[in-house]
Write a protein that binds this DNA or RNA. Structure first.
Lengths: 109, 109
DNA sequence: TTAATATGCAACTTTTTGGTTGCGTATTGT
DNA sequence: ACAATACGCAACCAAAAAGTTGCATATTAA
């Protein structure tokens, strides 16, 4: 299996999955799979696969009710990606890329 | 072609590319393709492909010198992903997922 | 009770991705 | 001058990902 960061990045790297996730985030109520699928052009089963990927990543949760499965978003795992990125924040400051760093480092060589 | 956010997420979703990017970020000097490839188990040409993907995403830059091509990191595009995530920050607070939101909303219904 | 709905599951196809090998060529070191 | 090095390019390959269709089944509505 892949590591956690890869799993999360891959889950949100797909534009359809980002759309599904977004729809759930801004929805005022949990949505059934069919309700979600109706908003997309791909088949219901195609949507189900994306739902599964998002669920595995922890980005959505499911609530079975009778024959329906209601989905709702869980944005918390995005914190993990945010943390991953935090390390690189020190390198994305204005007019600073690593070329500058190398040049400055070797100035007195 | 894919949209910008997809391009960036896909670029860093691959663990090998994240490793290459990381190696360049922490390197004290720009590295040639061969120098990078020596740190990985895949072939030089395989690394070149990853470099191309990272370059297209703007996450690394290249500097041709004679027969060599030196790479250095450019973390700035990560800001775009950071911005994308900022929207969802309001939803990842402690003990808050969208289920809570739905429940609270319908409390007085 | 019968019809309609919501879904899962499995098999399959297509496209994308990550990787390879082989080869040609420009640049550099001896 | 010649060998070694650093690379690009193209063709190819295998596995993963994205999507499909068909069908079975449970739940709900009429």
């Amino acid at each position: 299996m892949q590591d956690r960061i890869t799993q999360l990045f891959k889950a949100i790297a797909d534009p359809t999955r980002r759309d599904i996730f977004h729809a759930l985030v801004i929805a005022s109520t949990a949505l059934s799979i069919t309700q979600i699928a109706n908003q997309f052009e791909i088949s219901r089963q195609g949507v189900t696969k994306h739902i599964k990927t998002l669920e595995d990543a922890g980005l959505i949760k499911l609530d079975n009710k009778g024959r329906e499965r209601f989905c709702y978003a869980n944005a918390k795992p995005l914190k993990e990606l945010n943390k991953w990125m935090q390390f690189y924040e020190q390198f994305w400051g204005d007019s600073l890329d690593n070329l500058d760093t190398y040049l400055n480092t070797n100035k007195n060589a």
